[in-house]
Design a protein around this nucleic acid. Structure first.
Lengths: 228, 228
DNA sequence: CGAAAATTCAAACAAGTGTTTGAAACATAC
DNA sequence: GTATGTTTCAAACACTTGTTTGAATTTTCG
């Protein structure tokens, strides 16, 4: 029998992912968890800190998994390629999905909502708590492309982050469309296995290459707003 | 002097983008707009339809701008490259930014929040109302890569969508980090001009190529969860 | 002008919110 | 077994929410 605390966390994480933080009331949570209303404030203090606790439980799992993968990468002596670094994300995500039904989707949904919080008490909390692992990941990525400017790498990293969070948070809807339109329903792992090579190709693009095809800014290409 | 209706829309769109739909009360909106509380229900019927109206105003602008760009593309007789199609997104987004302060950021923020809505009354509304323009865009993209499977293209398109929405919705926070860490604050346009070539390179990656570097699945690469 | 329609307004409504309270029930340890 | 600390519970609290009402005001137009 799960403890009251865990029952609350289990119910809360599903409801938060499904309806959002503000749209989920403590009464919805305690009803689903089959515990007394007051127990939330007793065990967690407030709704705000409950949200943090839900987030923390996922994030700890994920960052531990990612840390393991990065360890493996450090241990291997083969030269690092972009895809090797990006691939370290796969397993930690899949592990969440095995932890509980649609764990990865729930986690990414929470991540996306946390990021949307402009005032962002979660954001600040995550920043300081998981800065180590994120720095480590970004260092390794930088090592694959020594000539790339760190600022360019910074932006690319967030471009990628957007793809991951957005796609996996909404994977259920996307899976449905994919199934009805193409008769193929990808699993989370299959989605990631498409996403990783796709993003690796993007990262491998060298914007410093002169006369590069992708940075050709002849009138018909790119924005050229000025020319109108 | 703006009409009451417009004053409400103007106040609402900023507050929605800043705090989210649920976290923004009608009283916050009417206070900021300096109109009577009841006028929201009088002019828009309900909060739900107000949200739709705010969204619609942006989306109409954007899709009209995108439509123009796609027209230009149809008119040009040069062979289409991926970057030509992706570049059509730039101008419509920048135009929103010129329409009102941080228009692009506000719009992307709304888009992101609308997508997060799992139950999604906005999502359904957008699906049927803007299916034409989205189909047109995706057709043109498909034309640049005739050999690519439509299902693969579908997923890539949503990977890209995630990058755009996520990055531009949170661009303010990212700009701040970029400024403090690299002493360079990019404009929205500059962000897009990094994003478009980056994504174009990703789209140009051919996953059907045999023995491709990026799909090499030797033990150290990709997930290989089975092997544990 | 003056009747009709459209709009604004202050006030109230019912419903739902997070949180607090103090007694009851339970568990733990001496 | 009794005392101590922990946890649960029903009830109430103070407050905010979106929406409605009906009268007052403004605008429209013949």
């Amino acid at each position: 029998m799960a403890s009251t605390k865990d029952k609350i966390l289990n119910a809360a994480e599903r409801l938060f992912a499904e309806h959002g933080f503000a749209e989920t009331s403590l009464r919805m949570i305690t009803t689903k968890a089959d515990v007394n209303l007051a127990s939330v404030n007793y065990h967690f203090g407030s709704k705000k800190t409950l949200i943090q606790a839900v987030f923390e439980r996922f994030m700890d799992r994920f960052s531990a998994g990612l840390s393991d993968e990065l360890d493996k990468l450090d241990a291997s002596d083969s030269s690092l390629e972009v895809i090797d670094v990006l691939s370290t994300l796969t397993r930690p995500i899949i592990l969440l999905d095995e932890l509980r039904p649609d764990g990865a989707g729930v986690f990414m949904n929470l991540l996306g909502r946390a990021y949307a919080e402009t005032q962002g008490h979660i954001r600040r909390f995550a920043m300081e708590r998981y800065s180590d692992i994120s720095k480590r990941f970004s260092m390794l990525l930088q090592a694959t492309s020594p000539t790339m400017q760190p600022s360019e790498m910074f932006w690319r990293l967030h471009f990628m982050l957007g793809s991951f969070i957005f796609t996996l948070a909404g994977h259920k809807a996307l899976q449905e469309i994919s199934e009805s339109d193409f008769d193929q329903k990808l699993t989370i792992e299959q989605i990631i296995q498409r996403l990783v090579p796709f993003m690796s190709a993007a990262f491998s693009f060298d914007s410093n290459l002169p006369n590069n095809h992708f940075t050709d800014s002849s009138p018909n290409r790119l924005s050229s707003l000025a020319g109108e």
